[in-house]
Design a protein around this nucleic acid. Structure first.
Lengths: 210, 210
DNA sequence: GATTTGTTTAATAATTCTATTAATAACATA
DNA sequence: TATGTTATTAATAGAATTATTAAACAAATC
């Protein structure tokens, strides 16, 4: 006989579905993931996915929104007054890098479906207008100070953020390839990733020297 | 009555199908693209796609192989003896950047389906073993010379290549977002891209200073 | 304990997708 | 021009996918 999980307003299948969907979307992308797979991974009936999120696209958007939000929020550590600019920057680069480690595939996920889903551009536009523009202004002010004091070369906040995101995201974009090509084990991969993290910090700090 | 295109061994639908598939895969990824769409874009019957390539995955692999090959080949300009290392490096960065401009979406395409398609890892492994390892050795030798002469800081070929690819690829990964968010026209986008190209060259050259 | 509300499942309609097959049209060549 | 080969299409089988509905079930509330 079937064992049915306890259910209540707070202990239902909504979160398991969200989590299963997140993992599957990360691994395979939006189109390649079916709602029946999501349900099966979450441990529920396929109809339930639609009960909670109505459509697959809806579910995807919910997940995407939270992910982008998380990545953006990291950059706000830039104005910790207790540390120097270089120290803050180093921390942000490393935190951002580590966020990608945490779920190695979300970089693919985020970039993957940009062209696919009409709603994504709306979501990102909203997030950028609400949060990124504010962040860039803050960072620009800090950079201007540093530039004036001749501690770094002339550079815009957008360029600096682009560089950080570029370097970090690519590590995990290329992760499946690199791991496969170099034919290394878990430990070896971990080592390479940590070395790359150091090199990315180096690259960025060096590139800012006046 | 229907006009039927001329057909011969050299003038058949194979290339149009390949081209249509390439564009659609770039735009929407593997799973989201159907063979009927490919056929419709190429201007032929859907069965013909299968006639030439048997399966959709086959078709995808053909395209992917050629793309990766193209991107890898650019790096071989590194040992042009008529120019300095810095000049060669600048050229490579710019050529690599421009290759992404040429079809703005292939970055998404290449990264997109890595986890999806079992054959991709085999393809990439082959390319890397055949071509990339050779290239990295060549570059490493050149870098060692430069390091010894104290013209650049200590850095590995893999790190340098990773940095170049990271910075360039991300411009086009984020292209749809940035274009949308900043709400700019074609000309404005072109300007931003060219500025970013300069900044990427700057970033890399600065980051190599001893 | 009866009733209402919220959660889950089974069944299935409707659509779409890949791949196959059989038939036809165009071309090459003997 | 007859004949074989290559290219192309129409039709469709078979599988998978999204979404909907009706009913069963559990928990909360009265």
């Amino acid at each position: 006989m079937k064992v049915r999980k306890k259910l209540s307003k707070k202990n239902n299948m909504e979160m398991p579905i969200l989590k299963a969907a997140e993992e599957l979307f990360f691994e395979k992308g939006f189109s390649a993931t079916s709602t029946i797979e999501i349900a099966s991974k979450a441990g529920c009936n396929q109809a339930l996915v639609h009960y909670y999120f109505r459509t697959k696209a809806n579910l995807f958007n919910k997940i995407l929104e939270r992910k982008i939000d998380l990545l953006v929020s990291i950059f706000h550590y830039i104005d910790n007054k207790e540390l120097s600019f270089t120290e803050n920057l180093t921390k942000i680069i490393e935190m951002h890098f580590d966020a990608f480690i945490k779920d190695k595939k979300n970089s693919i996920f985020v970039m993957n479906e940009i062209k696919n889903n009409d709603n994504i551009l709306d979501i990102t536009r909203e997030i950028f207008q609400n949060k990124v523009s504010f962040l860039l202004e803050k960072l620009d002010a800090i950079l201007q100070e540093e530039i004036k004091a001749k501690r770094i070369r002339e550079i815009s906040a957008l360029d600096l953020v682009s560089t950080i995101v570029s370097l970090n995201i690519f590590v995990f974009l290329s992760y499946p390839i690199v791991g496969n090509v170099l034919n290394i084990n878990e430990k070896g991969a971990e080592l390479i990733i940590q070395q790359r993290k150091k090199e990315i910090v180096n690259t960025i700090l060096y590139s800012l020297k006046p």
